[in-house]
Design a protein around this nucleic acid. Structure first.
Lengths: 347, 347
DNA sequence: CTGTTAGCGCCTTCAA
DNA sequence: TTGAAGGCGCTAACAG
C-alpha cells in the first residue's frame, strides 16, 4: 500500500522501452520473445526500482491469480494441516500462493467458501469434502476452475481425487490383529456418507472374511468420525456382555475418543481389568503414548499433497492450453499406499 | 472464471440505473446515499442475475482486498492452527477472507511470504514471528499494512501484539509443583531469542525465588523449542547425577520430546526406575495420555485469535479513516491469561 | 522483436 | 439522489 508504488510504466520509462515489453519480459510463464539485451535492461531497471507486479491488475486482465486454495473441514486438525503443508510447499516452489479456508465440517459452509474463493479467481481448489454432496464442486470444475478432491471421495461427482488406499490399509490393520491371534475384533466408528470410512469398513470385512470370521452386527460399531463418537462407542462396548479382544478405529479422532473412555475408567490403575488392543487409522506424534494402541495406518500426507498440486496445476495448464481431453478420460483417482506401524506399549 | 460472468454493468442495465448507483448500493462498507426504492431494485436485479463483485477489479481501484493473512512458522502445528481457526471464524463473520502462509520457521522465508502477501494487497497481516528480527514487519506496518504479532513478541519493533501471559503462566505452573512438595525442579527448553520463552523462564525463576530456591545452572536446561530439543535435554538429565524431582517444559513440543525420551527407556515396564513429574506449557487433546504430565498451562487460542482480528480490523479502519494516532500511543500489547490444568495419571 | 492501443470490472470525483 | 467519465496497473492483440 505504499503510496509511491512503482508501476510497469515507471519501469518502462526507466528502461527506455514500452510497457508491453516490460510485461513480456516479466511474464511469469516466461514465454515471451524478448531480445537478450532489452530483457537485461528491463530486469535491471525493475530490480533497481524495486518493481513488484500488482497481482490485482494482472488478475483483472488474465482472469487468473496464480493462487490455489485449500478448503478443509477444519484447520485445527493435524492430518489436514499436514496435507496443507505439503501442498503449500509444492505450490510456493512454483510461484503460486495458497489460500486456506475452513468449511467447519458443513457442506453449506463449504459451498459459501468455495464460491468466495472462485470469486477471488483462484486458479484451482483442493477440497477435503465436508460431506457427500458435491454438486457445487462439479459445477465449478465444469465451469473452468479445476477442483481436486483429497482424502475423501465424492461418488459420482466426476472429480479427480487423491486418496490413501483405505481399503488395503484397513485390511492390513485387521490382518495384523488376526496374526496376533485375536479373533473377537470390532470395527469402531465410520460415517457411511464418507468414502474413506466405507472403504475402511470394507477392508475390515475383507480381512475378517479371509480368516473365516463373520462380521455381523456385533463386530461393527459404526457411526461418527469424531472424538465423541469414539468415546460413545467405547462406552457401549465396555458395557456389553462379550468384550472384544481387539478393536479397529476408523480414524484418529475416533481412536482418541476410545482411548479417552478407557482412560476414564475407575479404578485408574493400569493392568487391572479389561484392556483391549487397538489398531487405528492415522499415525500421530502421540500414538506411542496411547495405552491401547498397537497398530496404526500412517497416511503419507506429504505425498498426497504433492500429488494433488501436481494434478491441479496440470489441469490448470490444460485449461490454458485449451485442451479438454480430461472430460473424455473421466476422473482420475489416485490411491496412495499407507504404512502400517507397530507400537510397543508396556502391557 | 465463468465466461459469462455478470458484471456491474449488466446489473445496472437490468435495474435501469447507472453503474455508479449499483456500485454505491453494493458498497460493502454500506455508506452510500441511495434511495430505498432504487436500492431495492438494484438488490433484486443483482440477486436475480447472481451478480458477484469481482474482487480483483475492486482491489485495483480501492487498493484493498477485504482479506487478512496469517503467517505461521508452520501449518502442521496444533496451537498455531487453533489460532488460525479462531481468526478465520472472526474474520469470515465480517466478510473478510483469510490467507494462510507458512514461514517454515525461517525469518528469510517469512520475509518473502510477507512481501508476497503485501503484493496481493491483503489489508493486514497477523504474524506469528519465526524469529527475533522484525524489520520487515515494522517497515510494512509503517507503510500502511497493519501488522499484528501473535503468540510471540518482537522487542523494539513497535508492533501491536496479542500474547498469553507467559510469565504468570510459568510462575503458576512452578508454584503448583512447589505446593506439591517438589524442590529439585528444572526448567527445560526455551530459545532466548523468543519472547514467550524468555517470559516463561522469568516466571519460573520468580516462583523459585519466592520459595527461597536458587536457580542456577543446574536448574535450567535452556535452548531449543522443538521435539528434538526436549528429547536431548531429557536425555542429558537422565544421565546426570542428581535427578530432578520435577520438570517444567517450555512448550508443547519440548514436552513431547521429553516424554518420548522417558518412554524410550529400557526396561519399558512402567513403575520401574525414575519417573519425574512434568508441568508444561500448552494443553492438548493428548496431554492426559502423557505419563509424566501433571500440570499444563492452556492458552486460549480462540481468544487470542479474536483479539488479533479485532485489533487488526481496527487498525485497518483507522488507516482508511486517515487517523494516525496509534503511532503516538505506541504499540499495544495485550496479555491474555492462561489456565492451569491438572492431569491425574495412574502413578 | 517491439510499440500502440484498447480494455479487464470497478470505484469515485464532479456535475446535474 | 443519481449519472457520466476517467482511470487503477496490467496484458493481449495487432501493427510496425
Amino acid at each position: 500500500m505504499k503510496d509511491k508504488s512503482v508501476t510497469i510504466r515507471d519501469v518502462a520509462a526507466a528502461a527506455g522501452v514500452s510497457t508491453a515489453t516490460v510485461s513480456r519480459t516479466l511474464d511469469p510463464d516466461g514465454a515471451g520473445g524478448v531480445s537478450e539485451k532489452t530483457r537485461l535492461r528491463v530486469f535491471e531497471a525493475a530490480a533497481g526500482m524495486g518493481y513488484r507486479a500488482n497481482p490485482a491488475a494482472r488478475s483483472l486482465k488474465t482472469r487468473s491469480a496464480r493462487a490455489v486454495a485449500v478448503v478443509a473441514p477444519e484447520l485445527a486438525n493435524n492430518f489436514f494441516m499436514d496435507l496443507a503443508d505439503g501442498i503449500e510447499r509444492e505450490l510456493s516452489a512454483r510461484g503460486y500462493t495458497l489460500l486456506v479456508a475452513s468449511s467447519d465440517n458443513s457442506v453449506e459452509e463449504e459451498k459459501k467458501r468455495v464460491a468466495m474463493l472462485a470469486d477471488r479467481m483462484v486458479d484451482g481448489i483442493v477440497v477435503i469434502p465436508a460431506g457427500v454432496r458435491g454438486d457445487h464442486l462439479t459445477a465449478l470444475d465444469r465451469n473452468g476452475i479445476p477442483v481436486v478432491l483429497v482424502d475423501r471421495l465424492i461418488e459420482g461427482a466426476g472429480i479427480d481425487a487423491i486418496l490413501s488406499d483405505n481399503e488395503t490399509g484397513a485390511r492390513e490393520l485387521t490382518r495384523r490383529l488376526l496374526e496376533d491371534g485375536f479373533r473377537r475384533i470390532v470395527f469402531v466408528g465410520g460415517d457411511k456418507a464418507i468414502s474413506s470410512a466405507r472403504d475402511r469398513i470394507a477392508g475390515f470385512k475383507a480381512a475378517m472374511g479371509e480368516a473365516g470370521l463373520h462380521t455381523g452386527r456385533d463386530s461393527l460399531c459404526l457411526g461418527g468420525m469424531g472424538v465423541n463418537d469414539g468415546f460413545r462407542h467405547m462406552d457401549a462396548i465396555l458395557k456389553s456382555d462379550r468384550l472384544p479382544e481387539a478393536l479397529v478405529a476408523v480414524n484418529l479422532l475416533v481412536h482418541l475418543g476410545m482411548e479417552r473412555r478407557l482412560l476414564a475408567r475407575l479404578p485408574r490403575r493400569r493392568g487391572e481389568g479389561y484392556m483391549p488392543v487397538i489398531a487405528a487409522f492415522d499415525e500421530s506424534d502421540y500414538s506411542p503414548f496411547l495405552p491401547a494402541c498397537r497398530y496404526t495406518a500412517a497416511q503419507d500426507a506429504a505425498a498426497i499433497g504433492k500429488e494433488a498440486v501436481q494434478r491441479i496445476l496440470e489441469r490448470i495448464g490444460q485449461k490454458r492450453g485449451g485442451a479438454d481431453a480430461a472430460e473424455v478420460t473421466g476422473p482420475k483417482i489416485i490411491r496412495l499406499p499407507v504404512m502400517i506401524m507397530r507400537h510397543f506399549q508396556d502391557r
